[in-house]
Simulated scan of single mutants.
Amino acid sequence: MEQIKTFSLSRHSRLFSVEDLNRDYLFVSATRHPHLEQPYRAESYAIGYLRKGEIQLQAGLIIHNIKAPAVITLAPSVIRSFSKSSESIDLEIIFFKNSFLLEKHADLFFLLKQDFFENSDLTVLSQKHEIMEKIEHIFKLISLTHHSANFHAGNIIRNYIFVLIYEIDAFYRQNQSNSPVQSLNPLTAKFRQLLKATYLQERKLEFYADKLSVTPKYLSAAVKKQTGRSASEWIAETIVLEAKVLLQNKSLTVSQISNQLNFVDQSVFGKFFRANTGVAPVDYRKNL
């Protein structure tokens, strides 16, 4: 198996059977469901428009059953996987690197300010709203430009991506009260934010409870009541997800992965992984 660190644009082009022109962006028009059950990260940002059909996406620990029309936004850092839903779809995706979009932009942190790329709760915008009409038109323009012999195609597509981002950002700003993140109680929201920042260093429930000034029992119950998972399950599943991504990179030994995830040794990591997945890390890697 090829070593996997992140999914490159070339790898995405092979997945969708489209021509790879070795650009810093890739436009895909797909009629079949993307099917990658193993979690992975990508080297590029992605904005997708599901025009018809249904797909299932897991972003982080959040599972989205996405029905058209819908917009999907993913940052490189987001661990994602896809499983079968409907066979026939109409899906267009523009993949782009940070360096491509911000080549001539003064604000190098522009993409980091767009919460919907990084936040797994906001990665899907699925509403029959006038924004979908705008998205439809913008993707048609991207497609027309991509398939033309326009000398300025790269610059034109770059600007269409900016328009997409501004439209999506404007929608979320105008509809904050309906946002999935807004519906989280403050304790759960703070816990998930803290977990995202520290899971590589800390996996004890007591640490998170102490930081949030509540008892471990109260934290776990509060998180489970709202999300269906206890705080301990969130911690364990987040670490397991990271481990699965790292195990796909065969240039890393299991011992090195254990160190990256801050386990005392490979044996402790192996017991943790087996307890949460039913298989040993080595067997998981063999079965990829």
Rank of each mutant, 00 (worst) to 15 (best):
A222W: 05
E103W: 09
L164Q: 03
T6F: 13
R274C: 04
A189F: 10
G278F: 01
F273L: 01
L184F: 13
A68M: 07
I135Y: 00
P34L: 01
K211D: 05
L212V: 13
T238E: 04
A197D: 13
R203V: 10
I135G: 00
N262H: 12
P186H: 09
K217Q: 15
L241Q: 08
S81Y: 05
E242V: 07
I4A: 02
K134I: 14
N259L: 11
S126M: 08
S29P: 03
H152D: 15
V279E: 09
R23Y: 13
E133Q: 15
L200C: 08
E133Y: 10
S232Q: 15
F263H: 01
L111H: 01
L102N: 02
S230K: 06
N65K: 11
F100V: 05
K84Y: 06
S183H: 12
T277G: 02
P186G: 04
S85D: 08
Q182R: 15
K250V: 09
V78A: 02
H33G: 09
I138G: 03
E43P: 04
S99Q: 08
L9N: 00
H147L: 11
I63Y: 02
H105A: 10
E103S: 12
I257L: 02
K204P: 10
S126C: 09
R41A: 00
K211C: 14
I93G: 04
T253S: 11
Q193D: 12
E167P: 06
K211P: 05
Q260L: 13
A59W: 00
R11S: 09
P69N: 01
V264I: 14
L108W: 09
F207I: 10
K67R: 12
P281K: 05
R23Q: 10
I47G: 03
Q3C: 12
Q58W: 04
F263L: 07
V245T: 08
T6S: 10
I235V: 09
L164M: 08
F95S: 00
K104H: 14
H64Q: 05
E37G: 05
K204L: 13
V28W: 02
A280C: 09
H35G: 02
R14P: 05
E130T: 13
D90F: 01
H64N: 04
R229D: 03
E118W: 03
F116R: 00
D107L: 08
T188N: 06
N259E: 15
F109E: 14
D24M: 10
F191C: 05
I157Y: 04
S177A: 13
K286N: 11
G154K: 13
L9C: 06
S148F: 12
F117Q: 00
R158Y: 06
Q248K: 11
G278L: 03
